[in-house]
Design a protein around this nucleic acid. Structure first.
Lengths: 239, 239
DNA sequence: CCCTCTCTTTGCGCTGGCACAAAGACGGCG
DNA sequence: CGCCGTCTTTGTGCCAGCGCAAAGAGAGGG
């Protein structure tokens, strides 16, 4: 389900919105775009699997991708959800190594791809790219630290609330009666994001729905009163 | 308990062993060392606190430092233990922001320190530094991902085993009858590293000690049979 | 050498959330 | 329109690990 084409259209304007290439001159973006390949991935198909040799860095331009680790026993843990404009598979830029996790499309998705050597060369020529990467990676590291602390110290309900709020910030779409998480998100996905089971997530969401806090459907979550979620997520007095 | 001095001795040879400055010419290392300040920190003193404005990047040259996050409720989570040669407080290099965690000396420790602007300037002038930082950060990110998955999916005993093995690799010192974790490490420290309680850690270590696997004392852990720990940490058939 | 402070051990009761089971509800496809 | 596969809900039993309490055991200082 994976296709590779040379790119016909100029993606250079698009690239200036991608964090990795922020601040580069348009001429440079053109050069960068020229070197890219385009890869598409159907629903549930993988851009790469955990353990594959890390050869390629991607920037998502359409769709949604989840970065997931699988344990030897087959349990899955979602490390991150990638939205358009974000890079993934960045380890490729550092030579050697293999991917520490898999990248799976949650919807039909399109990404631009560069092989590791190309990225390394670009970084050398345009240090701004390396600095951008550093800043992006630092942000993700920090988020990961926070999630780690959460997992270590907070109860499930609060973790789920935080996960939803993160997704809301990252991919929320304002609609009539609230903010919609704008891609298919099952109870199981939420469980794998927060380190719990789909059963527990289901119970929690049911509770919130009864309280009028959210509105759910099959692989669909709409947050009606974000503020109340924040109250659950942080330890605020319910004012 | 924090002191600042200009540095009298040349630290430049030392710096070439620090990951951040690997591959730089000695002349450059001299320049870098010239720009450094030296900071010492007694037992339990902090290099910086979570929430402080991130102004300074450190490279530890002696002692041991733990990077720790505190929850609003006062629980602590140890994110990492820094050994000589490693950098910490690296967010400073990226301007803005405040430290997402605190850095506390576990022993009398000495570090070299640069302010953020200096580091940014150095990175611009010597892109190799930025690339080194990128590679180091990528490694830490990956380790954090792994620990996150562990915390989400593995039982406590296995997590403790893995934590010990990591420390063993990072700071183990071969001694007569095994490998010693070479800095004061209490049950509580191990609990905060693995997301559990000191009680549970104590019980687990007691069990292992009875089995002859390790040898412990007050803030002291000696691993007698590393291989058996690996068997517990991974899911190997006990062969 | 004793006193004190901190670290460690161990017993015990409790519970959050896991695991399994089974029934219900969508939604897409033929 | 009805079937089937997937996702979701809900009931129930259970246990790993938490939390408290209280008693040892070092280590260091006076």
């Amino acid at each position: 389900m994976l296709t590779r084409n040379a790119i016909p259209q100029p993606h250079s304007e698009y690239l200036q919105h991608a964090g990795l290439f922020r601040g580069l001159a348009l001429s440079v973006l053109d050069e960068v775009a020229q070197l890219a390949r385009q890869r598409s991935s159907q629903n549930d198909a993988f851009f790469f699997h955990q353990g594959d040799p890390a050869t390629t860095l991607y920037v998502l331009i359409q769709g949604r991708v989840r970065i997931v680790q699988v344990t030897p026993e087959g349990q899955q843990v979602i490390l991150r959800i990638i939205s358009p404009g974000e890079m993934f598979g960045g380890i490729a830029a550092l030579g050697e190594a293999s991917y520490p996790a898999s990248a799976q499309a949650l919807e039909a998705s399109v990404a631009l791809a560069w092989d590791g050597e190309t990225v390394a060369r670009l970084m050398e020529e345009y240090p701004r790219i390396a600095l951008n990467a550093l800043r992006l990676l630092a942000g993700r590291y920090q988020e990961m630290q926070d999630r780690y602390r959460e997992l270590a110290t907070e109860r499930v309900e609060r973790r789920v609330a935080r996960a939803l709020l993160r997704l809301l910030r990252q991919t929320g779409r304002k609609v009539e009666n609230g903010v919609l998480i704008d891609f298919p998100l099952s109870r199981e996905d939420l469980a794998e994001l927060t380190g719990t089971t789909l059963y527990t997530v289901s119970r929690i969401l049911s509770g919130w729905e009864k309280a009028g806090l959210i509105e759910t459907g099959r692989q669909r979550v709409l947050i009606r009163i974000p503020h109340k979620l924040v109250v659950i997520a942080e330890d605020l007095p319910p004012g």
